[in-house]
Design a protein around this nucleic acid. Structure first.
Lengths: 331, 331
DNA sequence: CTGAAAGCGCTTACAG
DNA sequence: CTGAAAGCGCTTACAG
């Protein structure tokens, strides 16, 4: 910029003014400066700007598993809104590892992100402390953490599972296996509550022997499904608390020579874009991924643009039971 | 840092030395400084550091479509390797839009990323100019661009499709529909060449009437598949040049009341994690996504750590034909 | 082993 | 409308 100023025989202040359109500069000078910029091949340096301004126009984003299509879709929606607003996003995926998550958040904070969007790996004892050590606004998505009091957008997880399990009960199923998410995640807990509440509402006692605690991943779900499906009194239906785990269940069915929905009915939380073309066409609780991402982005943008200054807001969206044909009525 | 220095009654140089372990400092001073850091709640400011050092330890990454599981897996692998090496990644997805891609690359460059990994949306007339305006190293992945001479990791696309089509021919198929990617992408072109070469090698002339030019997305592939499948002389097999498009084909089959593989055989480029549990179990050309990501990350790291200074390197990986049961032999 | 000082590339009151 | 100067928070020769 000094070079440009020298070449155009003006001060850097004037150059800055034309580069940012931040003040009125006479046409002649503007032209001279623009010419000099072209000649020198000047490129603005956003980090110097950030240092001076105290803002980087970038948002840090951590998700538990970018490989999970649910998170992918949410991330895509977030980055689209943010990009339109002139923000970049710095993305970290931590493979459901809380220590790594904390490390990543620190790294993002070091780099002076203007805001943070976090899909936490699980309850995180350090998160509150880390966040309160800064005044960078944060919004939690998907899962919330005990004691972390920030903006958040979550789903009504309990209701989503309640609807699905009630649907299965309506089909005549009484032995409904449940592969849960980890109980140190809010979604894991809330979804399990939905399962229990549905059974209770139907007057059936919850059969804890049919509940298995998974980790939202395929491999462990496979193992748990094998357990469930080889029980002396096998469940007639299995529900998994997320998308990845249903794949594990389907693999178990395949390896056991069972078919869905003939032998076992299957349903899960989270939808797939291909769910209505491949067989069995899965019945799912679809999350409004686009809306989740958009809301999260808006919340952070609101904070940054000082439109909002109040207490934490928590937005709760609803899932939608999407019935296809992976569950059959028990005659 | 000045505050810390003041509190510990030392100079900032000394504080910097202990924060970065960049010089030997006496134990007493170290202790005093660490105490002061704790007391003040000092946090390092990476942007100031970056300005001084001329390096941000962050890599810019743009992909055509983060929503595509192929790219997602590659991104996950990249970010894992880079994170271990102490780099952050700034991610941009541009929905296959080249202008937006250029804009994003500019934005990343403004922010002084140390390196760039680009999965280009397509041939980009401006990319070479943009890149040559900086000395930030770049590596292209998946698709390469005419005239852009940087490190790259790509697949042997031609061979992948050749193998798949040869397999179909071996099954007795003669009328093989092909839904291509956009021809302004290197993958779109190379895969189409693989298709033609396979037909020629088998002595059959390539039937251009069975070739449709798609855009790597589901919606357009659906439309094209409807065209192909309602031809007077319908193909007996359809191959799509990527993963998303095969979903469109399956939707078309469903809407036409055709089944796979009984009525039509289907195969595609790119694998799915669930391909061997849902029906039809798709026959695919699987890409080594993990390896692609790792290689790309290593290439950029090599450049940054000055281990490599030579001419652009181009790594070519091989796909693997993964036969399942979406293609039937024609008796 | 430690400190004073310059400088990375910007922006922004403050004068003129 | 334009310029000289300070300062954002660091790092790093250079002295001592």
């Amino acid at each position: 910029m000094l070079d440009v100023a020298a070449a155009a025989r003006v001060s850097v202040a004037t150059v800055s003014a034309v580069v940012n359109g931040t003040a009125v500069v006479s046409p002649e000078l503007t032209a001279r400066i623009e010419e000099a910029i072209r000649a020198i091949g000047y490129k603005r340096n956003a980090v110097a700007r950030s240092l001076k301004m105290g803002t980087t126009r970038t948002i840090g984003l951590t998700v538990a598993d970018i490989t999970n299509p649910f998170f992918t879709d949410v991330v895509a929606a977030i980055q689209e809104v943010l990009h339109k607003a002139g923000y970049a996003v710095m993305l970290c995926s931590n493979d459901e590892n809380i220590e790594m998550q904390d490390e990543q958040i620190q790294l993002l904070l070091d780099r002076m992100v203007d805001g943070l969007i976090i899909a936490p790996a699980g309850d995180d004892a350090n998160l509150e402390r880390i966040l309160s050590g800064t005044n960078v606004p944060a919004v939690l998505i998907d899962r919330i953490c005990e004691g972390v009091d920030t903006d958040a957008v979550v789903l009504d997880n309990e209701q989503g599972v309640f609807d699905a399990v009630t649907y299965l009960l309506g089909l005549g199923h009484r032995r409904i296996g449940y592969i849960s998410g980890p109980l140190d995640t809010s979604t894991g807990r809330d979804r399990l509550i939905g399962y229990r509440r549905a059974l209770e509402a139907a007057g059936g006692a919850c059969q804890e022997t049919l509940v298995r605690r998974g980790d939202y991943r395929e491999a462990e779900a496979y193992r748990l499904a094998m357990e469930l499906l080889t029980l002396p009194e096998r469940p007639t239906a299995v529900f998994t608390a997320n998308n990845l785990m249903v794949i594990g269940v389907m693999k178990a069915l395949r390896d056991l020579g069972l078919s869905c929905p003939e032998d076992i009915s299957v349903a899960c939380f989270d939808d797939f874009p291909w769910a209505d073309v491949f067989h069995p066409q899965l019945t799912t609780v679809a999350q409004p991924v686009q809306a989740i991402g958009e809301h999260a982005a808006r919340l952070i943008l609101d904070r940054l643009e000082r439109k909002t200054d109040g207490p934490p807001r928590r937005e709760v969206l609803q899932g939608r039971l999407t019935v296809r044909n992976s569950c059959r009525p028990l005659s």
